[in-house]
Design a protein around this nucleic acid. Sequence first.
DNA 1: GCAAAACCTGACCGATTGATCAAGCTTCAA
DNA 2: TTGAAGCTTGATCAATCGGTCAGGTTTTGC
Lengths: 221, 221
Amino acid sequence: MTGVPGRGGIAAQAKQPRNGGGSIRARNESRILKAAEAVFAKKGFSGASTAEIAQRAGMPKANLHYYFRTKQQLYAAVLDNILTIWLDAMDEIKPDADPGDALARYLARKMESSRLFPEPSRLWAMELIGGARHVQPFLRRRLRRLVREKSAILESWIAAGKIAPVAPEHLLFMIWAMTQTYADFAAQIAAVLGKDRLDAGVFATGRETATTLVLRGLGLR
Amino acid sequence: MTGVPGRGGIAAQAKQPRNGGGSIRARNESRILKAAEAVFAKKGFSGASTAEIAQRAGMPKANLHYYFRTKQQLYAAVLDNILTIWLDAMDEIKPDADPGDALARYLARKMESSRLFPEPSRLWAMELIGGARHVQPFLRRRLRRLVREKSAILESWIAAGKIAPVAPEHLLFMIWAMTQTYADFAAQIAAVLGKDRLDAGVFATGRETATTLVLRGLGLR
DNA sequence: GCAAAACCTGACCGATTGATCAAGCTTCAA
DNA sequence: TTGAAGCTTGATCAATCGGTCAGGTTTTGC
């Protein structure tokens, strides 16, 4: 939460002054990261200006550059913060769980992420659409390994006859797509439904629909 | 295909010289639009530079500005070209069709669009993530009306007991999400699968997985 | 063949951008 | 109390951007 990149993360380790736990630094980095997340998510990397991010964080531009030397560095730090969210919910899928319960809970958690934290999802989406230049190592290593793990579990469920046979990696792609669409494309969904913004009811119906397709689609229920 | 905006489209009608069918104009506008589509899709509106688009179209920047006075105008024209693709495949859903066949064909066509024309999909996605500023009228009018039409058909299938009860609009959202994820997030899917780019086999498996979830999920098969 | 329209383009402009810097201010340990 | 490290910021710079323009070339209608 301090903006200090995790191991194997995206951002290069920033030159930290000895005062690693300095309350001023922690507070300001956090404010900058939060502001940057919002602005990057709305306008993309190029569209966002450090001046706007700084203003949103309540400080002059030069001060932002004191904490994050370059825009690229700031962008990397923001992406780094998001990785955790990305991987978290998947731990619902574990070998000894009941497939129906596990998948339903996974869908619910992902949908809740879309409702509560849509901006990280949108920023992530923009990065992927742009070719995933900054996150390719992460995708090819950590995410790939995790998908392999979870796919093995899904395969075992298929082998045991607990769920219908499907390509397990693609099942995960579908779950990601169905849940994140409510964050990434909220503008479209709201417009089509004739709403100003997505309320809790829309997310609830979305969760039910996705759960129905996945569970019944896999022969559960 | 000439870049002339359709009625009710996004782009303002460009001041066309009397020579509406001028072969030079048609050829160059088409080249520009194609180049712009690629660059906008990769870098977003702000990230794309008219110089890069012009270079990709094989002409100096000033010449691009001869055909499209402003970057906004060019962007609108590109979006305008995409609208048709967006709406096309949905006509598979018609009242007297067999639900299973219709939905399977719809999924297949959308997935084929993702495979053959990923860039329009990505550009559309970026526009939506950014808040859909340029396409809001389209979303609120034409797309909304179309979704209502198709939802009514789905409702009639539900009422007739042909498919399981689901929220019809959300079913469409799910189908869009599942199919377009193979265009928008191709970089992620490729990385996770350990491929350089998505081949035909990936799209085929994706189509099968999506079809399984939708058809079995709706109680068909 | 000729004039008008359409097309082409190098040079240029004002605005915005990311980033730097020097000078001043605050915090805190000794 | 003091001084060094950390923090703040207005001013400024070089680069890039979208867009313009004058002046030339090519195409087209008659």
